[in-house]
Write a protein that binds this DNA or RNA. Structure first.
Length: 421
RNA sequence: GGCCCCGUCGUCUAGUGGUUAGGACGCAGGGUUUUCAUCCCUGUAACGCGAGUUCGAUUCUCGCCGGGGCUACCA
């Protein structure tokens, strides 16, 4: 029998990386076994669930390229089905009315959860009160709905956050009361914490998938990174293609302890993914991210300097339009004869037969020889002139991409400004 | 408070009844170098504490401590 898993987010907010990881693991399980992934929206709390949040979650999943086979199914749409079971439980006296709400009768004894990740976890039933399965307005509650839906949807593996472990015995009791004879296999993933060790929240920086996207991360890098938050294949491997992830992922190797999201490491990994992309693809992504076109040559010479897509524009925006001078950079560079050297560089560049990186380099190095200074004394004024700052892609390549006319124009503007001041 | 889960470098992790406790990020230093990066090299740093079992515990058991979750007519 092939596996059927579900990702069942509650649409009470954005999808953060903890939820994204749960979705990923479920997806890997389904894709790795010719199984089925059901997307179910757990919106039995109408007060806190919004259509906007649902859409946001779907967007996040699509961006991460995690597709689903069934759904999205809105749990609230199945309320009639849930009510039917609640009525049956009441009729069978397994649940009872309490001031209009319906409570399940918690039986005597113990309830044991067999968890792939946690092992056997036993709860004494006496520590669990008769819990509410329907509000007094008749609307079904989570613990009831989950049990019914997982059964109706024939879910074989329930893979979810550890915060659900304590509720699992309640769901098991509902399942028992309902007379369901087949139990899903449970796997409770360790929670994700913020850098302060607390439960992940908006305060912990780029915690939502949407924020990661806006920060310029690549979906494949995010997938690889979060896969490693709570799972490891061996002692050495860090980079996994999606195919490798699908092939190698297993619940048995999921760790039990909570993980902390470390954006530094994601940045590093994202940079590695960025540099692996071929020129056309990287350009496509940068253009899509910045909303600009014609970026190809600039992207090509900037690639090894970027960790995220968002770093392109601050560093290479000058290729598209002149940037204001960074005054600190100006003060640092435009002194001790920099103006003269810039003038010499300008003249050398103007005479070039071919405005390509190699001849440009030869010309500028000739100026270095001539003036008997360190190379940077010549290059930095030129860099400042064309980019407005001291940081840019390689100066020879930058000049070539910018083109002679624009380059000379900007150098002239810089010389004029230096003269005025 | 009660119940449950968790505890290896700062972070993500590998690992074993006997290992120089491995890798990665970060950080520090060095190399390459036109800036910033990339890249390469070196270094830094961990088994929470206390008992018990054992010839020997990071590893097994118990206790403690610490962190987290649940305990809702939230999910």
């Amino acid at each position: 029998m092939s596996i059927r898993v579900r990702f069942a987010p509650s649409p009470t907010g954005a999808l953060h990386i903890g939820g994204a990881r749960t979705a990923l693991y479920n997806w890997l399980l389904a894709r790795g076994s010719d199984g089925t992934l059901v997307l179910r929206i757990e919106d039995t709390d109408r007060e806190r669930s919004t259509p906007e949040n649902v859409e946001q979650i779907l967007d996040a999943l699509r961006w991460l390229e995690l597709d689903w086979d069934e759904g999205p199914i809105s749990q609230s749409d199945r309320a009639d089905r849930h009510r039917e079971e609640i009525a049956r439980l009441v009729a069978e006296d397994k649940a009872y009315l309490d001031d209009g709400a319906v409570r399940l009768r918690v039986p005597e004894g113990q309830t044991t959860v067999e968890d792939v990740i946690r092992g056997t976890v036993t709860f004494e039933n006496e520590t669990i009160d008769d819990f509410v399965i329907a509000r007094s307005d008749g609307s079904p509650l989570y613990n009831l709905a989950v049990a019914v839906d997982d059964r109706d949807m024939e879910i074989t593996h329930v893979v979810r956050g550890d915060d659900h472990l304590s509720n699992t015995p309640r769901q098991l009791m509902v399942i028992e009361a309902l007379g369901i004879d087949r139990l899903p296999i449970y796997a409770h993933l360790p929670l994700m914490h913020g850098p302060d060790g607390k439960k992940l929240s908006k305060r912990h920086g780029a915690a939502s998938v949407q924020e990661l996207r806006e920060a310029g991360y690549l979906p494949e890098a995010v997938r690889n990174y979060i896969a490693l938050l709570g799972w490891g294949y061996d002692a050495e491997s860090t980079f996994f293609t999606t195919e490798e992830l699908i092939e190698r992922f297993s619940l048995e190797r999921v760790s039990r302890s909570p993980a902390v999201f470390d954006e530094q490491k994601l940045r590093w990994m994202n940079g590695r993914y960025l540099r692996e992309l071929d020129g056309a693809e990287l350009t496509r992504r940068v253009e899509s991210f910045t909303g600009r076109t014609g970026l190809g040559p600039a992207v090509e010479i900037s690639r090894e300097k970027m960790q995220t897509l968002s770093e392109f524009w601050p560093m290479a925006g000058f290729f598209v339009e002149a940037q204001p001078y960074d005054e600190r950079a100006w003060a640092k560079v435009m002194k001790d004869g920099a103006v003269e050297r810039l003038g010499l560089a300008r003249a050398a560049l103007a005479e070039l037969a071919s405005f390509e990186p190699e001849p440009i380099e030869a010309a500028l190095r000739a100026v270095v020889e001539q003036t008997e200074v360190k190379p940077r004394k010549v290059f930095q004024p030129v860099r400042l002139a064309i980019s407005g700052t001291t940081i840019s892609p390689g100066i020879f390549e930058s000049l070539a991409v910018l083109g002679r006319d624009t380059a000379l124009e900007r150098i002239d503007a810089t010389l004029a400004r230096a003269k005025d001041s």
